[in-house]
Design a protein around this nucleic acid. Sequence first.
DNA 1: TTGTAGGCGTTATCAA
DNA 2: TTGATAACGCCTACAA
Lengths: 350, 350
Amino acid sequence: MEYIQNVLEMLMTVTIRDVAKRLNLSITTVSRALDGYDDVAEGTRQRVIQAAHEMGYFPTTAARQLRGKRCNTIGFIIPARQPRFADPFFSEFIAGLGDGAANRNFDLLVTSIPPVEEAEHLAYERWVQGRRVDGIVLARLRTRDWRIQYLKSQALPFVIFNQSRIELDVPGIAVDGETGIATLVQHLARKGHRKFAYIGASPELLLQVERFNSFRNSLATAGIRLNPAYILESDLRQSGGYQAGKRLLSLVERPTAIICVNDLTAIGVLQAAREYGIAVGTDLAVAGFDGIAQAENTQPPLTTLNQPVYEIARELVEILLAIILDEPIAKKRATLQPELILRQSTGDFA
Amino acid sequence: MEYIQNVLEMLMTVTIRDVAKRLNLSITTVSRALDGYDDVAEGTRQRVIQAAHEMGYFPTTAARQLRGKRCNTIGFIIPARQPRFADPFFSEFIAGLGDGAANRNFDLLVTSIPPVEEAEHLAYERWVQGRRVDGIVLARLRTRDWRIQYLKSQALPFVIFNQSRIELDVPGIAVDGETGIATLVQHLARKGHRKFAYIGASPELLLQVERFNSFRNSLATAGIRLNPAYILESDLRQSGGYQAGKRLLSLVERPTAIICVNDLTAIGVLQAAREYGIAVGTDLAVAGFDGIAQAENTQPPLTTLNQPVYEIARELVEILLAIILDEPIAKKRATLQPELILRQSTGDFA
DNA sequence: TTGTAGGCGTTATCAA
DNA sequence: TTGATAACGCCTACAA
């Protein structure tokens, strides 16, 4: 008899009602005992906890949430075109978010949506209005990013990874690409480079705006003329960098230094240079931005501006959870300096 | 007046009740109209859809789920020790899961838990009993894996990435590591190697069991003696491979070929070899398993048994969704052959 | 210290 | 073709 009871309990979802019934208590008492209220007799509480454990009771998230509680989930929508968001940048970022959340017993909900407003809007609405998440992380911000307005209007907690130091008045972490690029350009100019090229991304992206402007201004400051033919737009991917690299390297008058908006682009350029038989590090300098692991092992190793993406993501989660849980927190905003890591691709040896 | 109404609608969550009220319809009709039942007048349906769209109505997942519906979410728990599950293998895998799910309008819920039974059990229970997910993906299976029994007993749809061809009678995809390792050993034996070493992982893991057994059997078949000092256990990470590599390379009689249970381990060995001034490719052969992107760019490039992790993950999602949605599907199980990619780390040139 | 009862937003059953 | 109503499992104001 008890056996049958147990089997049923295994198969059905055990609800708070089942626990109450077994103990001849009301569901109120069970609920309060489990939630640690202090108006439950200690003996009762023990019995409840014991029984709940034995019966394998877990509160149904959906029900709890419907009562207006949190769902202990944060969300991140990768602004990526299918297939594959296996971009190492996002991988690191998601790893940080996932670990940060898991560390506080939150789950991470992810999906990937091409950064086209309609589709994206729908996805955010589904999550926000459908209350799938308690908070959201935003990355790869764009100029006039509707997401910020939207989330503000919905009063949903969110934080941003601002890959620029352009002010946005939103909790999050920023990385100062302007100073980073300036440092890089100065370094290369000091080594004698005069023919600088830049392979960037869509001008919609804040990171592109900031990095490119800094590139242009730094050249001006150094009194170096910028050849318009040396400015290319790419797509942040290796294949795009490869294409752009071929364009630049097949010019009659080649640039001697190519600065790329990110590491993947730069790795594509290395690939192109190899194909053209150009010795990177001596005949050509190539540099990226991000500091992905792969950049350590390229041929030759890639000079880059490193940003600690994993740690940033973990920190972002901390800030977000503080907002969600209404906890005090030291600072809701911070700006980090990327670290210039010099390697052989710019003729620097470690 | 209407303006105030609109503002309120923006701030509050719009429920099906609001839509019904606005149209002077019952919630029943609205629900059925939106769900595409055919017992709703076409005109009514149009009005409902129109109004719902205008008002920004999205069904609350929690409520729907409470009524016993799906939550359109699949889950994956990374069996990893904190910090960072940024292992490239899992990154690729998660990318595939995320894209596969997004492609079918499902979300992916992820978290990472150290593979210790109690903690892990709790996490799975939370998701399963708390009905957070409609299905689960399992990877890195272990010998006598309680997760399989558990999910079966809960009748929750799940699929496995079986990194061995050991039969498990569960829907999913398997990769034949046995044949893979055998091919690799044969290749190296043919090149004259006789002193084979193996750096593996915990014997709890199916992939280790299969790969190591295949390693041992292949040597036996080739009539090669296996030196017990050449068998090391590591942790699937680069740092572990580095440690184990140092152990092997500091032996008086060094092995000439080191086969690693995965690429990260092998990359650690390359690192150790560099430190010892040993020329990998000529004085020492090193090979891995996985085919991670990084392996292409190591110094020297790494020979590996490639498995298309991203594609496997996408396919797994397809199978899982077919089970969840009770759709017909061609095959619920498949076994793939890893592809031997020969590179310079074993003295092979592309 | 414990219990009763109402409602969160949906969907489903049944009646009109 | 449409509507009233009862759950789903949980939390909590209020009553006992």
